[in-house]
Amino acid sequence: MSAPTVQDAGGHDGLEVLNLRKEYRSTGLFGRTRRTVRAVDGVDFHVPPGGSLGLVGESGCGKSTAARCILRLAEADSGSIRYEGLDVRAARGPALRMLRRRVQMVFQDPYSTLNPKRTIGQTLEEPLHVHGIASGRAAREAARALLGEVGLGTDAMERLPSEFSGGQRQRIGIARALILGPSLLIADEPVSALDVSVQAQILRLLDELRERRGLSFLFVSHDLGVVRHICDAVAVMYLGGIVERGPVREVFDAPLHPYTKILRAASPVPDPAARVTMMRIEGEIPSAAAPPPGCAFHARCPAAFARCSQERPLLREVVPGRAVACHLFP
């Protein structure tokens, strides 16, 4: 597969995110700001048309916040987000409506995002009405066709979300994301609530849809195995920043950043022979409310030296197509 990679376009195609920042402040009892959490702290990435980027990392690394900013489910504090040439952060009125058609979201738990009292048909047709795309019979036809495309029978139209299994609900979630004909799907842990056998069904469906519709994916996940199977590029996040970025196979087969190495080694593979590679992993992820100075990872890093606790390393290209934020790669 010669899909485009993250780095190969600097133009206005696809999704371009530059220096994205988002802070959350929690206020104390008397309205004073108690602490500031830098959830996303200067993140750059690019998803070319038809490309798929995996945003991976552990809890609190900022991967979901970054995705939410792109969807305007959270407002970024600074930085630029452009999609198909459109300024996402500044979009209002018709531009924002257009954006909502072009960029759609698939959630982890489809059940919590489906209205339990509405039939699947109603759920799928509603966006068509809201956006004035189709109504009546045309809307029904569009919904039926889509159900077929995601592998559900058209009898699903009249049924309620509670009548479906987890895997079927995720198919419904995907159908709803596709009904407006988006070009970019942002999926936040779309298969982590599913059993392995069903998970593989959904991954295959996403792959087929991407091929058939030429979709781009931004795929947020903690599961490196899943990302390897669905993405062509990956960005590894740690405490609000990207520490490594590159083609998925290269990054996972030969990680460069010490954190990527640890994350990769800790990701279990179904092979007892791989046990020997399970290294000692020290420490926990520090709170983003009190990030350490210098490199965010230095306190846990087996290779840290003096500079790492003083100066934050920048993400820079170290071999063609691969970028790392680490003082080991000057």
Partner: peptide, 8 residues
């Protein structure tokens, strides 16, 4: 059916 990080 298990996606592996060490396999394509």
């Amino acid at each position: 059916a298990t996606p592996r990080v060490d396999e394509d």
